[in-house]
């Protein structure tokens, strides 16, 4: 096994391109990432729905459950904890998370290969 390469931060879009509580998809190093801006900050997760198998998570509805920020799959409504990626409806199912930050008004993403 080669050592895990520390991936770079990739600028994606200006922050004002992200509407509050409405996701967009981005292509980062060939990986489809779903990006969200909420009251609680920025989140980046895989765009791939781990249950449905389609690249649609960016089109899900953002909200909260018991104080935790959530994302619901637009295919069959499974709800995920945006802070951990864990599915709150199906034990054992997880949405891969990526690092995201805002620098000088630009949203940047760094892929995380494994949890």
């Amino acid at each position: 096994m080669s050592p895990v390469v520390a991936l770079d931060w990739t600028p994606v879009c200006p922050l004002d391109r992200l509407d509050l509580d409405r996701g967009v998809a981005a292509l980062v190093g060939g990986v489809q990432v779903a990006l969200f801006r909420t009251d609680g900050g920025l989140f980046a997760v895989d765009n791939l729905d781990p249950v449905g198998g389609a690249y649609v998570m960016s089109r899900g509805l953002v909200g909260s459950r018991g104080g935790v920020p959530t994302l619901a799959s637009p295919l069959h409504k499974q709800v995920y904890d945006l802070t951990t990626g864990h599915c709150l409806d199906l034990p054992g199912v997880t949405l891969r998370r990526h690092r995201v930050r805002c620098r000088d008004g630009l949203v940047e993403v760094r892929l995380r290969q494994e949890e």
């Binding site: 509805l61 909200g63 909260s64 459950r65």
Partner: peptide, 10 residues
């Protein structure tokens, strides 16, 4: 309360 969800928002 809270930030809504896929039930109340639609």
């Amino acid at each position: 309360r809270g930030r809504g969800c896929d039930i109340c928002k639609p």
